[in-house]
Design a protein around this nucleic acid. Structure first.
Lengths: 140, 140
DNA sequence: GTGAATGCAAACTATTTGCAAAGGT
DNA sequence: ACCTTTGCAAATAGTTTGCATTCAC
């Protein structure tokens, strides 16, 4: 729960709701939608409201503890960041999200792109979507 | 307007609205939000409704003519696909979107990930965000 | 003429904001 | 006790759906 300590030193209060959200994210195998975080967080903080979940997720994103997951459809989810600026691999079947160490592999590509385009690249997002071993029977 | 021919052979009708949306996307330098496509498409089809824009965008995505752009915040945009499954580079300042030929560079990484995780990777999304030459004066 | 496509309004989903009450320090 | 944080309700933003009308073929 390093994040809780970090938040405390940043001047935030250690509330039940925040602890509950962090705990749910920690326990999750993959990514969760805000609504899922909410219903699960009630386990540890029965009175928690969905609004607080949104606010806490925003706080955790801001502090780099979790990351937003984007899909081709409209749904957004959140997953814990394991490796600084790693990329992620999402299973289309069971939704588990695995962080993959990645920036290094992209360095040459990014350098090449900067040279060719004159852009200064500030950030990048690499998302691989597929099926994990257990979900490979699922049709396309 | 290859896409219009394609749609026709797929059995879709060549309507004013569809032509207007395609034309706006073609003329755009970068990505556009549905609302922007709508207001600009009125130039060519004054009666077009936002709903039709959404429906047409979905059709064009389905046929691989455009791609959804995801940002860290909630806004989704659409940009033309120039290169089959290329990745894209988005300018944070002026929003221009450049397609970069890319799958090749990721092949080794994807192969490695498949071996290490047992996943079958079906799709990937690489988005580089930065500032183009003209926008580099903009603060972070 | 016929059925696909459209536009409108209304429904819906996801997220954010205002504000009084509760809780952490 | 003070001031942040919370929960509720309501507001908002983005997108989708139902249905009568319009338009491409």
């Amino acid at each position: 729960m390093q994040i809780m300590t970090d938040l405390k030193s940043a001047g935030y209060r250690l509330t039940q709701s925040r602890a509950a959200v962090v705990r749910i994210i920690d326990e999750a195998d993959g990514w969760l939608r805000p609504e899922q975080v909410h219903s699960q967080a009630k386990k540890y903080c029965p009175s928690i409201g969905l609004v607080t979940v949104y606010r806490t997720l925003a706080l955790l994103v801001e502090h780099g503890y979790i990351r937003r997951i984007h899909f081709d459809d409209k749904c957004h989810g959140y997953a814990r960041v394991e490796l600084s600026h790693g990329h992620h691999l999402v299973c289309r079947g069971c939704k588990q999200t695995i962080e993959i160490a990645g920036t290094e592999d992209l360095k040459p590509l990014m350098k090449q792109v900067q040279n060719e385009t004159g852009f200064v690249i500030e950030d990048h997002l690499l998302e691989l979507v597929g099926l994990c071993r257990e979900c490979q029977h699922i049709p396309t």
